[in-house]
Design a protein around this nucleic acid. Structure first.
Lengths: 236, 236
DNA sequence: CGTCCTTTTGAAGAGAGTCAAACCCCGTGG
DNA sequence: CCACGGGGTTTGACTCTCTTCAAAAGGACG
């Protein structure tokens, strides 16, 4: 279900996402396009925000992936959450954004400051985005707490696919997935060795095609049922 | 002992917590006390909010513990986050609160509606509370993703202690802990059998005294270091 | 005294981690 | 054109944490 009735709003995925979340008007889109017109670039592996630092303003990811990361004193690493194109770092509504964890550029990034004090519709898009952030974090907790290795990986891939789909960056179960198996392991709380084995099993089942940086979930519906994902919330 | 300089603001722990977070004025406290004066009661094991439902208004927990829970189709259960006295369910700032997961009363509860549209200081307390909620959720992800069983349990107990301390409900590592080992297991992503064994080891090390519903962490500093907890954010 | 819930204990099995090495792809440079 | 290097992926053998299944033992309460 791409956009049947509505015309495609813009060529910029990040803006398409906010449009989808808030039903923006053309003025809102123009404002966002203006902001996106002079993007700031960040190289992969650079820190966007150090833990405990505060962010000047919320930041919109235009291209590339970022992640909230926690590294423990002994070197263990956990990717707490991913930030995909169209999603926002430091989106805390009225209060000052203060990072609760380090934010890392997973790939090269294009970003811009998030326009503030704007229309009601745009604010609604931001608010919806915030609500989604929370639900993604909760889903991550359930994933790590109660799913086994195979389920964790499929569940994460399904979630990523559905998140990318909002910005028009995924279709028919296909999407770009720039994480290495090692980073995937740090996301789902496993070792890269075990991730590798489990991914191969999913391949052999025909559930998953993953070559280079592109992933194809051959039957998203089946996959999402197999991991007991709750139905998507009805719109509104 | 407790508040050296400031006079103890109120006898109600939930209000003490918000006071600590926002440096309230007496008017704010009076407003909260008024709201807390006709509490609503909820029995243990009742659902406060069903998954996907929206909440009429944010709800302040006056007494007792609640939890965000996800139950999977096959019966697996994960407690996503705990809500302790003085903490808030459905605290989403300006946007409509919509529950992302079921909220369950862990013990009998006393609650009240959270006063809205109030002073700047009270709003700041709410905002800080929201920020803390997010950091607790992130800590839960790290706990489940990268800590082993013993670490998960100690880390959770340390966090709970420090959260209760804000409301004046913990001192010298001692606090009331109403969860059964089974519920603790559902929180830290383990089985109750294994939780039991690991708790016994912590007892034998002398790290933990847990009898009935009261827990004593004999050396909080040592415990928090042993699980690699980041230093608490400096105030402000 | 019996019932229900929670904690405790035991024995055996499975899932994931560890360690180590080989393999692959790809860009670099001789 | 091919050797070199380096990240990422793959494989194998072994270990160990945590789960599973079962049952006993405590405790609170009507």
């Amino acid at each position: 279900m791409t956009d049947a009735g509505r015309p495609r709003s813009t060529a910029i995925p990040a803006i398409r996402r906010l449009d989808a979340l808030g039903e923006l008007e053309s003025g809102d889109r123009a404002l966002l396009e203006l902001a996106a017109d002079r993007p700031a670039h960040v190289r992969a592996h650079r820190e966007l925000v150090a833990a405990g630092q505060s962010l000047a303003a919320p930041m919109l990811i235009l291209e590339g992936w970022a992640a909230h990361v926690r590294i423990m004193p002994d070197g263990r690493r956990q990717i707490i959450s991913l930030v995909l194109p169209g999603e926002i770092v430091g989106n805390r509504g009225p209060d000052r954004p203060r990072a609760t964890a380090t934010v890392l550029a997973v790939t090269n990034l294009a970003t811009c400051r998030l326009p503030q004090h704007t229309s009601a519709r745009l604010d609604r898009a931001y608010a919806t985005s915030r609500t989604l952030d929370e639900s993604y974090l909760m889903a991550q907790v359930v994933r790590l707490g109660r799913l086994d290795a195979a389920e964790r990986i499929i569940d994460l891939l399904v979630e990523v696919y559905e998140r990318l789909e909002i910005a028009g960056l995924g279709e028919e179960g296909r999407f770009v997935f720039p994480l290495t198996q090692e980073m995937l392991a740090d996301t789902v709380g496993l070792t890269s060795v075990h991730v590798n084995r489990v991914v191969q099993q999913a391949r052999q089942r025909g559930e998953l095609v993953w070559t280079g940086r592109s992933v194809h979930l051959t039957d998203v519906g089946q996959s999402r049922r197999s991991v007991g994902r709750p139905d998507r919330l009805a719109g509104g």
